[in-house]
């Protein structure tokens, strides 16, 4: 559809659901969930060849949320796309609930990989992409990683693998929000320059504003046109995007808003509609 206004509307809805889910659960990771809301909107409501009536279809595109702690963003998208009842969102992180604190492939329709231990999802994504190459399948694989996640050594093992096997059906998206639990990524353990590193590892790359839909799609187009190499979209994002007091604040990596903060966040996310 690629209609920026409509997608913005969806993303705003996802952000509201993310905040409400985490507020109701009393725990969770709002910062990084909000930073990928636009990317995940672009993937699920335009880019990816998937739909809720094709769960288990071997030809569908795959999505791996390697930064599994931002599951609320994925859950909000899956609910919106009809993979499961929206009411499930309000049971997030509860005993017996379908929606676990981190994505669970076994229990949640639409979740392609169980993730949460950082650096693991990208390996699974490489496996899915390699399987497509081995068997001549046409599906594509998308994986979102955090910039802090790049500190995990296994990520670079996976990147070597992706380039070595020329996985041009793999599109890696780095959610470069610049913050991790203990503070700015550049202070905790610098991962920059990300683009140069990825190029040196054999990736074709694009650096974009991860909240700008036309830019996101032009990167995805470039990824699909790239042959013989995996593609990495380095998406510059704002952690906590859309909620003023959460934006660019590492303290909102993994804490839930209180009632007052929740009200304010929802108000801000509503005002944006105007």
């Amino acid at each position: 559809m690629r209609e920026t206004e409509a997608l913005k509307q969806i993303a705003r809805g996802l952000r509201r659901d993310i905040v409400e889910m985490i507020y109701r659960a009393g725990s969770g990771h709002p910062g990084g969930s909000l930073s990928i809301a636009d990317l995940i909107t672009a993937l699920y409501f335009d880019e990816m060849n998937q739909s809720s009536d094709r769960v288990g279809d071997p030809a569908r595109d795959r999505f791996v949320l390697s930064k599994g702690h931002t599951a609320p963003a994925l859950y909000a998208a899956l609910a919106k796309a009809g993979y499961f009842d929206r009411e499930e969102l309000w049971k997030l992180r509860q005993v017996g609930a379908m929606l676990q604190g981190h994505p669970d492939r076994k229990g949640t329709p639409g979740v392609d990989a169980s993730t949460g231990s950082l650096g693991l999802g990208i390996s699974a994504a490489c496996g899915m992409a390699k399987a497509a190459k081995l068997y001549g399948d046409a599906y594509r694989v998308y994986a979102i990683l955090g910039d802090g996640e790049l500190e995990e050594g296994q990520v670079w093992e996976a990147f070597l693998f992706a380039a070595h096997y020329k996985l041009d059906n793999l599109c890696v998206i780095i959610d470069a929000n610049g913050l991790q639990i203990d503070g700015p990524v550049c202070e905790v353990m610098n991962v920059e320059p990300i683009e140069e590193k990825l190029r040196a590892f054999g990736f074709a790359t694009a650096v974009i504003d991860g909240h700008d839909f036309p830019a996101i799609f032009s990167a995805f187009d470039k990824a699909r046109e790239t042959k013989g190499a995996p593609f990495a979209v380095i998406a510059k994002t704002v952690k906590g995007k859309g909620v003023s007091f959460m934006e660019n604040n590492a303290a909102w990596h993994g804490s839930a808003p209180n009632a007052e903060q929740f009200e304010q966040a929802m108000k801000e996310l509503e005002e944006e509609d105007a």
Binding site: A113, C126, K130, A131, Y135, F161
Partner: peptide, 11 residues
């Protein structure tokens, strides 16, 4: 992880 990804596609 790669083995897991391959297995997730049914092989």
């Amino acid at each position: 992880g790669v083995a897991a990804g391959i297995a997730s596609t049914g092989r």
